[in-house]
Design a protein around this nucleic acid. Structure first.
Lengths: 150, 150
DNA sequence: TTGAATTAGTTGCATAACTAACTATATGTC
DNA sequence: GACATATAGTTAGTTATGCAACTAATTCAA
């Protein structure tokens, strides 16, 4: 019997990602109110491309914790919006490099500001130490489970 | 400028509910492997009904952090599976009371065991104190945001 | 008591998620 | 070189989510 055996009544509140979901929804709402017509899922892809442009779909899947089918549709929608383009890799023609367009560039500053503002709303009265613990626990839970993926 | 201002590179890892998502997916997989044909979203509704049968859809929405439209479809699907029925309230005919069927009863024990087992996998090497902090932070983030819902 | 406002639930529309089966390209081995 | 295997990405099918507009029942107020 593990040290972390849960009382039944506690199980759900741990499994449920209510807090992160609430943050995501609030961020989505703030984008919409600012006239930004992108979803937070789309933003999460742009976020990684702004850090490093021209990532493959595979790599974007790893960095955003999504499977490749999900990435295909997200890129489809981002392409429709004119924010990214698929460029076939010259080294390996199986690979699509996802590249930001000129249209996507000015969004970076505004979305970062809105994200920061949303986080400040969400994290008022929560200390830096608590945030560090949450991030750390998240990473370890993720590692615990993904190591055993068969 | 708040005390919790984030460095840009940290933003995403906090917003993203990767750990809770990973737990949910693992639980889903464990259910499937045990021959249980329910989704974790459906399970989250059953979980609350096992604690208290005959809740209204409204109340289920509050307890599972879903909007009423989402609850409508989840109950639709649970009804199709024969696990719950809608019973019109006698006091207020607008209200549907969601009631468990006989079929749903034996699922409780097995799903709890699988959930416990999944949590033990996910939470190995994480202390009770850390878990308490995460739960506490989640609740406060949720409160911070829902107070301001307009 | 009638008409306005509120509440519970449903429906339509768009986006997104996972799985599984598929195509096409690349790699590795005999 | 040829065939098996692995990898990158797409597609189809099912479930779920959020928003907005809707119906029906209830409550409040003049």
């Amino acid at each position: 019997m593990s040290n972390n055996q849960f009382k039944r009544g506690e199980l759900y509140s741990v499994i449920n990602g209510m807090a992160t979901t609430a943050v995501a929804r609030r961020l989505q709402k703030n984008y919409r109110q600012a006239g930004l017509e992108i979803t937070i899922e789309q933003w999460s892809v742009l976020y990684h491309l702004w850090k490093e442009d021209g990532l493959s779909q595979q790599e974007l899947g790893i960095r955003t914790f999504r499977d490749k089918a999900s990435i295909t549709r997200l890129i489809d929608n981002l392409e429709k919006l004119g924010l990214v383009t698929r460029v076939a890799s010259k080294e390996d023609r199986r690979i699509n490099l996802v590249c930001l367009t000129e249209t996507a560039m000015p969004l970076q500053q505004l979305t970062y500001e809105l994200a920061n503002q949303t986080m400040n709303e969400a994290l008022q009265n929560i200390t830096k130490e608590e945030i560090e613990i949450v991030k750390n626990v998240f990473q370890r839970v993720y590692d615990n489970l993904s190591n055993k993926d068969i």
